[in-house]
Computed example of a mutant assay.
Amino acid sequence: MTDDQRWTAASARDLLDRTEAETASALDVPTGPLLAVWGAALTGGHLAIWWATREQDPYTGPPAWALAVLGGALTLALVVTVVTVGRAARGVHGLSSRAGLLYSLTWVLSFGAAQVIMVALARDGIPDSTFGKLSALVPLLLVATIYLASAAPLGAPALGVVGGLLAATTATAAWFDPSLMALVIALGCAISFGAGVAVARRPQ
């Protein structure tokens, strides 16, 4: 190997190392605090839904105040996530910056699409019990999917733990009636995000 070839190989390796470091920096978000925010939002929101519907027979759906609690909590958690990721990616350019932007857009677009779907289903007049289940299960499954998909690229095993437990919670909750399902989701979220925060705090 000539000196030029050695120089080229070393330069390429150095460039690769810098790119990987920039990508990690772009997505270096405080996992523990974000998980705590989402855990509080999902747990508190679904407890409000359960409390508001626990005595309904037949089920007619949560009142506006309970939906506002859940929607407001999820919106706040989403804003905190986008702002946090945006700050982490500030000052980083190129592929790394785009990765951070796409991660933020994943949350915004997926939840936006879910809301549009729920509005369309409501307009079609689906049964209250079915709408109640879907309105709770769809956002939860979105969070689980995004966390599972993000765990490896972000090097954050805590996201994988939360995502896996949330997926199990979603599948389990679907078998209960809408009111009790909200309580199951609240408990599952508390356990899932609590486990994720514990993993995130462990020394790496």
Rank of each mutant, 00 (worst) to 15 (best):
L166Y: 01
D128Y: 01
A167Y: 08
A144E: 04
A120E: 15
L165Y: 07
D128S: 10
A195F: 12
G164A: 10
A144T: 05
A174Q: 11
A136W: 00
V162C: 03
L134E: 07
A152F: 13
A152L: 15
I126Y: 04
G160L: 09
A122D: 14
P178F: 02
S192H: 09
T169D: 10
L121W: 03
A151I: 06
I185H: 03
A120C: 14
L154A: 09
C189D: 12
I126P: 02
T172C: 09
F131Q: 11
V184Y: 00
L121E: 12
P127Q: 00
L142E: 07
L183P: 06
L183N: 03
L159I: 02
T169H: 08
L121C: 11
V197E: 06
L137P: 14
A151N: 05
A122R: 14
I126T: 01
A158W: 08
I126M: 06
L159P: 01
S135Q: 13
I191Q: 04
G163E: 03
A151V: 11
P127N: 00
A136P: 06
G132Y: 00
R123W: 13
A149C: 07
L187H: 01
G132V: 03
M181F: 05
T145A: 12
A149S: 12
L154H: 14
T130R: 05
L137F: 05
A168H: 04
T172N: 05
L165E: 07
D124A: 11
P157W: 12
A122E: 15
L165K: 12
G160W: 03
A144F: 04
L187F: 10
T170D: 09
V138I: 15
S179H: 05
A120I: 15
G196E: 10
G196I: 06
L165C: 12
G196L: 08
K133W: 04
L121M: 14
A167P: 15
V162Y: 02
G132I: 02
L159F: 15
A182D: 09
V138Y: 04
L134V: 09
L137N: 09
L159T: 00
L159M: 11
L141W: 10
L141D: 15
A152M: 06
W175H: 13
V138C: 06
P178A: 03
I185R: 01
L180F: 12
A186Y: 00
G160A: 08
L142P: 04
L187D: 01
D128Q: 08
L141E: 15
A158E: 13
L154D: 07
A136E: 10
A171H: 10
G132N: 03
A120H: 13
L187R: 06
F193Q: 05
T130W: 02
D124F: 02
L154Q: 13
A168D: 04
L166D: 13
L140T: 11
